[in-house]
Write a protein that binds this DNA or RNA. Structure first.
Length: 646
DNA sequence: TTGTTAGGTAAGGGTAATAACAGCAC
DNA sequence: AGTGCTGTTATTACCCTTACCTAACA
């Protein structure tokens, strides 16, 4: 589909009819029906209830290159409201694309037709090398490694649909109780839309629904019993597991860690020497050689005698080999280099990174496996890294890394957040979505939008919004609270709740074009100013669900009229009172942190600092003296950069 | 009897979270 | 010396793939 073509339309089906109005201040207000029968309060993430479906049942072409427009349609005469629908159009060259087929399918879970190539894999039960080679030769590719959140969402949703259609309560009934012939189509059905071999899906499902899995740490008593059972039953893991109330794989794994002769704690020099000897002997290498693969750790452990295979592997790959081959220390600059090098690989998926290649010739890298864990450490600085597609995460990290050293970085934290050593940041790189909001009614009133046919945000009837990566409204951590972000990086926090008229905010501050005032409105028109922002990274804190519950129970939260909007300041962010930031438990704070190019992917990043337990950890913190002091972002990359610049 | 389907088991490499430890500054 | 912070190291529950096996069925 060419950019100029009429786009195939995909309708965003929201369970709730979401509507916009505009108030006298020009704020767009999102309406959400009160009788929300679709379990707003359920545990299921709201984004899972937002689905895309093809309006006409037509395959929306290659939706991996689609961009989405939001348009509003009239709902009721005389109502200052707008129904929001989204349409998908082809993404222009150079613009963001959605990530992988499985994710696209998830978004289009009602329309998962486009995956002939995928289904060949996900519908085939193959475990042999030959089967695999055949598929590879046919040009099929599939995902390996850890399952992403998106994949798990697809799987769960497929399972839900399957059990619902058959009136079954618990999927475990099918998995563990139903005879094979009765569940004949089960695994193939739930594998639909996943780019994984059927066998991998099968394994995953078994683990997920086996309540003897994820039991947690083994007690001393269990360990003793396990030893007894092991002597009695050998490697009959199923029997041992049954006797212990653990899954077979769990007991098998636990036994691998147990060895009568196993030492714990610090390795002695003798042990290290022995380990090196054994590894080099078994691999036919010499002292000083780098050995990171092709080692049978079970054999190594046997020969070392005093350590388990895991201990040997870990010691070798994370320390000893590097030490013996003359490795250099890992500096903070290396963190930055690592992000850059990964970006230079230009891979679509994290699983495509060749860590061996990346680690090659890098003297500070202890092993490819170790390097991967370093990357993981960096990645984990971003709280919502699991939700972010790899390219977005990487781009965001790159932006952060490449920010000018002089950039002032500020993050909002709570006073009590100091109890937590390092604030967790969440990086949100939004997908750009053109949004058009059409005005329906011309009546006066709170809208103040008079006769205009189209409500425009800033300028232009077609306003670009950035929806967050998964093409949902992105929850902020407070149930019912979401972010939309404009093309100019103005945040639009949307609040969905049982309240029929809820909140929204976001207009440029009249006092400063660099500021966006974010304030939320409740039904009684009281609102709370929260913040300012600026093109570039916005760091935001949100309250937890607990906060609203606390408020409900104790009535301690206060709201503040709009006149008392309170800018956060630019560099010296003063403390804010609790009234400034609390809005019925839905609190949003953002501060300017740095300026980035407002182009390309999302134009900038939103760093989100959820402070679920820190904001109001106890009743005494909810008093009128509750303040939200601003701290310094402790993102190591940024710190490194500042240090480096020194 | 043979091939296919739909699982199923065991082994082992690996990941991710966290606990324990060590070094340092105050 | 005590304390708190931070980075490193060790541990371990859990994950995933691979290779091989099996029973039912066509």
């Amino acid at each position: 589909m060419n950019a100029g073509d009429v786009p195939a339309t995909v309708t965003l089906e929201s369970v709730n009819s979401v509507t916009f109005t505009q108030d006298t201040d020009g704020n767009i207000i999102l309406h959400c029906p009160q009788n929300d029968e679709e379990d707003l309060g359920s545990d299921e993430p709201v984004h899972k209830r937002l689905r895309l479906s093809s309006e006409d049942g037509e395959d929306p072409h290659d939706s991996s290159s689609a961009e989405y427009a939001v348009v509003t349609l009239p709902i009721t005469e005389g109502d200052e409201s707008f129904e929001v629908t989204m349409t998908a159009t082809e993404m222009r060259e150079g613009e963001l694309e959605t990530q992988d087929p499985s994710e696209t399918q998830h978004k289009n879970s009602a329309v998962v037709k486009k995956t002939e190539d995928v289904s060949a894999v996900s519908q085939a039960w193959f475990t042999t090398k030959e089967d695999k080679d055949t598929l590879v030769n046919k040009g099929h590719k599939w995902k390996q490694g850890m399952w992403s959140k998106e994949e798990i969402d697809i799987l769960m949703s497929n399972i839900e649909r399957y059990v619902k259609n058959r009136g079954i309560q618990d999927p475990a009934e099918i998995i563990f109780e139903m005879p094979k012939e009765e569940r004949k189509d089960f695994y193939r059905s739930i594998a639909w839309g996943l780019n994984r071999p059927l066998f991998a899906v099968y394994r995953r499902v078994l683990r997920m629904y086996d309540n003897r899995n994820h039991v947690g740490k083994y007690t001393d008593e269990e360990i003793n019993k396990l030893k007894e059972l092991r002597e009695k039953h050998g490697n009959d893991w199923a029997t041992i597991g049954a006797a212990l109330g653990r899954s077979a794989s769990s007991v098998k794994d636990r036994c691998r860690l147990m060895k009568d002769t196993c030492n714990t704690g610090k390795w002695t020099e003798d042990e290290e020497r022995k380990l090196a000897e054994v590894v080099h002997e078994l691999t036919g290498t010499e002292a000083g050689d780098v050995v990171t693969q092709g080692v049978s750790w079970a054999t190594v452990a046997e020969l070392v005698g005093t350590r388990s295979e895991k201990q040997c592997r870990s010691k070798w790959l994370n320390y000893l080999n590097w030490k013996q081959s003359g490795g250099t220390e890992w500096s903070k600059e290396n963190d930055i280099n690592l992000v850059r090098r990964i970006a230079e690989l230009e891979v679509e998926d994290e699983n495509d990174i060749n860590w061996d290649t990346l680690a090659g010739g890098w003297s500070s890298v202890r092993s490819p496996q170790w390097l991967r864990s370093k990357w993981w450490t960096i990645k984990r600085q971003v709280a919502n890294h699991k939700e972010l597609p790899f390219p977005f995460l990487l781009k965001g990290l790159q932006d952060v890394v490449e920010a000018p050293p002089s950039t002032k970085v500020v993050v909002v934290t709570s006073r009590s957040a100091t109890a937590s050593p390092s604030p967790v940041t969440a990086l949100q790189i939004p997908v750009q979505i053109p949004v058009q909001i059409t005005h329906v009614s011309s009546s006066d009133g709170v809208s103040g939008t008079s006769d205009s046919e189209t409500i425009t945000l800033n300028s232009g009837a077609l306003q670009t919004f950035e929806l967050l990566p998964s093409f949902h409204l992105q929850p902020t951590g407070t149930p019912g609270t979401y972010y939309l972000q404009t093309g100019t990086n103005q945040s639009l926090p949307l609040t969905l709740s049982a309240n029929p008229t809820v909140t929204l905010t976001a207009a440029a501050s009249p006092s400063s074009p660099d500021q966006i005032i974010l304030h939320s409105l409740t039904g009684d028109a009281e609102n709370v100013t929260v913040q300012m922002s600026h093109p570039g990274i916005i760091i935001q804190t949100v309250t937890s669900e607990d906060l609203s519950e606390l408020e409900a129970e104790q009535g301690l939260m206060k709201e503040q009229p709009p006149e008392e909007q309170n800018d956060c300041g630019e560099e010296e962010h003063g403390e804010q009172t609790s009234e400034d930031v609390q809005d019925g438990g839905k609190m949003l704070i953002s501060c300017e942190v740095k300026e980035t190019e407002n182009s390309g992917i999302g134009g900038g990043a939103v760093l989100m600092v959820p402070s679920p337990s820190c904001f109001i950890p106890s009743n005494e913190d909810i008093g009128t003296d509750s303040v939200l002091p601003l701290g310094t972002l402790t993102d190591p990359i940024l710190e490194n950069q500042e240090e480096g610049s020194d």
